[in-house]
Computed example of a mutant assay.
Amino acid sequence: MLKKLPKDNMGTSNLGWLQSRFHFSFAEYRNPNNINFGVLRVLNDDIVHPQSGFDMHPHSNMEIISYIVNGEITHKDSMGNAETLKRGEVQYLSAGDGIYHSEYNLHKSDDLRLLQIWIIPPKTGLPRLYGSKKFEENERKNRLLNIVSSQNGNADIKIYQDVNIYVSELEVNKSLEFEIKENRQVYFVQIEGSSKINDVILEDGDAMEIVDEKKLIINPISNSHILFIEMPKK
C-alpha cells in the first residue's frame, strides 16, 4: 500500500525566524489521527532564518537525527559538543535520561533548511549518544547512502532503534530499486525535485507511507533529492 501525503495537507507554522512543515503532530499542530508512523514520531521540515535558532532546551528518551538540506547548523550541548554542519551532513543524539542542546543558524544571510527526525527508542533510560558525520556529495549521488542504522547495522551513524535511514541525490534517468523485507515498512520524503515511486508521483515536500510492499522503484522526474526511513512494521 502506497499512501501519498501531499505537503499542502501537512501542519505548518511560521514564527518569523522559523518556518516549519510538520509531518506529524507537533507544537501547535495537533491531529490525533497523525501522531506517528511506527517508531517515527516526528519529522519536521524546518527553515531557520539567518542569525536565529533554537536556544538551549532539554530532550530525554528520544533519538534525534538532523539532516542538513541547505545552509549550516551550529550545535552546542550539555555534553560539551560544539560544531557546525552543512548540506548533506548529519547530526544525531540519543537523549537518554536527559540532554540540553541549542541549534543556531549563525550565517549572516543564508537560510538553514533541515529535516529534524525523532525516533522512539526501544526503551527508556539508555546511555546518551552524540555524534555527526560529514558525508560527501559523491556518496549519495545516483546511489542510496545508508546514513543511519541500528547498533547492528552497517551505517557510520548507529542509534539504538531498529531503523535504517537512506538518502540519495538522483539525476534524471538514474533510477534506483530498494527491496523491502517482510514485516518492514517505509516512510519516504521527497526533499527536492520530483520522482515517481512505483506508480505514485511525489513533488518536493511530499511524503509517502509504504506498507505491505516488496520493492521500491524510484524514478526521478527531475533532479531529485530523497530520504526514507525503513523500520519494523507496527
Score class of each variant (00 low, 15 high):
162 D>R: 09
24 F>D: 10
93 L>I: 01
113 R>F: 00
52 S>I: 05
73 I>Y: 15
15 L>E: 10
17 W>E: 02
96 G>S: 03
233 K>G: 06
125 G>W: 04
14 N>Q: 08
69 V>Q: 12
221 I>H: 06
213 E>V: 09
89 E>A: 05
170 L>C: 05
115 L>Q: 00
4 K>G: 03
145 L>W: 12
131 G>Q: 01
122 P>N: 11
107 H>S: 15
130 Y>F: 01
136 E>V: 10
81 N>C: 09
82 A>H: 08
230 E>L: 15
200 V>E: 14
140 R>Q: 15
91 Q>H: 14
4 K>V: 08
198 N>L: 10
145 L>H: 13
8 D>R: 13
214 K>D: 14
60 S>Q: 11
115 L>K: 01
194 S>D: 07
170 L>S: 07
135 F>P: 02
22 F>Y: 02
24 F>W: 06
48 V>P: 04
209 E>S: 14
200 V>D: 06
163 V>P: 12
206 D>H: 05
206 D>Q: 07
104 Y>E: 11
84 T>R: 03
122 P>E: 03
92 Y>T: 04
1 M>E: 11
198 N>M: 07
168 S>M: 07
4 K>N: 07
202 L>E: 03
215 K>E: 14
234 K>L: 10
160 Y>N: 08
6 P>G: 08
64 I>W: 02
45 D>L: 04
221 I>Y: 05
224 S>D: 10
43 L>C: 15
209 E>L: 14
79 M>A: 03
161 Q>P: 05
132 S>A: 02
12 T>K: 14
37 F>H: 12
36 N>Y: 05
194 S>I: 09
33 N>L: 12
188 F>E: 10
62 M>R: 04
8 D>M: 13
188 F>H: 10
109 S>V: 02
121 P>Y: 06
197 I>H: 08
3 K>F: 13
10 M>S: 11
9 N>M: 14
184 R>D: 00
233 K>T: 06
90 V>K: 08
197 I>D: 06
35 I>K: 08
148 V>K: 02
92 Y>C: 05
135 F>E: 09
176 L>T: 10
25 S>A: 13
124 T>Q: 13
1 M>H: 13
231 M>L: 15
201 I>L: 03
159 I>D: 02
92 Y>V: 02
58 P>G: 04
204 D>W: 00
79 M>W: 01
42 V>E: 08
127 P>H: 01
177 E>G: 09
19 Q>D: 07
90 V>Y: 10
59 H>P: 00
115 L>V: 02
29 Y>E: 06
66 S>T: 03
165 I>H: 07
143 R>I: 14
144 L>R: 13
177 E>K: 15
27 A>M: 06
87 R>C: 09
111 D>K: 03
191 I>F: 11
178 F>I: 09
113 R>W: 00
45 D>P: 07
89 E>P: 00
47 I>M: 01
128 R>E: 01
198 N>P: 03
75 H>Q: 09
81 N>P: 03
52 S>F: 09
180 I>D: 08
234 K>A: 07
186 V>I: 06
228 F>Y: 14
140 R>M: 15
60 S>A: 02
18 L>P: 01
120 I>G: 00
180 I>R: 12
170 L>P: 02
231 M>W: 10
216 L>R: 12
37 F>P: 08
18 L>T: 04
68 I>E: 06
3 K>L: 14
186 V>A: 05
96 G>T: 02
107 H>Q: 15
85 L>N: 04
201 I>H: 07
182 E>L: 00
12 T>P: 04
97 D>H: 05
